[in-house]
C-alpha cells in the first residue's frame, strides 16, 4: 500500500528531519521509501518541505501531487497543502502558530499544539518536530514508535546522542496528545 506524505514548515522547524526519520524507520521495517526535499531558494529562509513515499512495492514517482498525509507547521504551508490532501486523507497542523485551521470537511484534520508542548513542557522548542511526530504516529500508525527511535539513533551524529532521551520524551508526549477516537 502506497502512502504519499508531505511535511512542510519554516526552514529550521525540522520538517526535513521528520520526513527523513519516517523514511528511515519505514526502510528498517522493510518498506520501499523515497524522500524528496524542496531545495534551493525555498530552503533558505522560506518554507521548506519534503515529500515522503512509503510502500510495499517499488515506488514510481518520488514527486507527488496529492497526499494521504500532510503535516504543516506554518500558514503558507497550510494554504499550499490543504487543497492537495486526498479526500479522506489526514492533515496535521500545528495549532499554536496557525490560529485559523483548515476549512475542508472531506478530510480528517488534527490540530496539534506541538510548539506549545515543546516550549512549555519540555523547555526546548527544537523537539517540536518530535512532538508532532508522536502525534502523527498515533494518528497514522505509518511506522512503529520504536522504529523512529532507531531511525533517530541511526541518523543523529553520535555527539548528539545525549539528546536521545529528550527526543523520546517529546515523542511520547506527542503520542499522548492524541486521544484515540
Amino acid at each position: 500500500m502506497l502512502k504519499e506524505m508531505v511535511f512542510a514548515g519554516f526552514g529550521g522547524q525540522g520538517v526535513l528531519s521528520m520526513g527523513t526519520l519516517i523514511a528511515y524507520a519505514a526502510m528498517k521495517e522493510g518498506k520501499e521509501v523515497s524522500w524528496f526535499p524542496s531545495y534551493g531558494p525555498e530552503m533558505r529562509g522560506g518554507t521548506a518541505n519534503c515529500m515522503v513515499n512509503v510502500s510495499d512495492e517499488a515506488i514510481s514517482s518520488p514527486i507527488d501531487t496529492e497526499f494521504d498525509i500532510a503535516a504543516v507547521f506554518n500558514i503558507p504551508s497550510l494554504e499550499k497543502f490543504e487543497p492537495k490532501v486526498k479526500k479522506g486523507g489526514i492533515l496535521i497542523w500545528e495549532n499554536s502558530v496557525i490560529k485559523k485551521g483548515p476549512t475542508r470537511k472531506d478530510i480528517h484534520s488534527y490540530g496539534v499544539p506541538a510548539i506549545r508542548t515543546a516550549t512549555d513542557k519540555l523547555k526546548n522548542i527544537k523537539v517540536m518536530n518530535m512532538v508532532a511526530m508522536g502525534a502523527l504516529l498515533k494518528i497514522t500508525q505509518i511506522v512503529k514508535k520504536e522504529s523512529v527511535l532507531t531511525a533517530l539513533k541511526g541518523t543523529l551524529p553520535e555527539r548528539y546522542h545525549h539528546l536521545l532521551p529528550l527526543n523520546r520524551n517529546a515523542l511520547d508526549m506527542g503520542f499522548d496528545l492524541i486521544k484515540t477516537k
Binding site: 527523513t20 523514511a23 526502510m27 520501499e32 521509501v33 523515497s34 524522500w35 524528496f36 526535499p37 531545495y39 515506488i59 518520488p62 514527486i63
Partner: peptide, 10 residues
Amino acid sequence: DGAIGQMMEK
C-alpha cells in the same frame, strides 16, 4: 538531474 541527486532512497 537535480531531483535524483537531491532525493533519498534505499
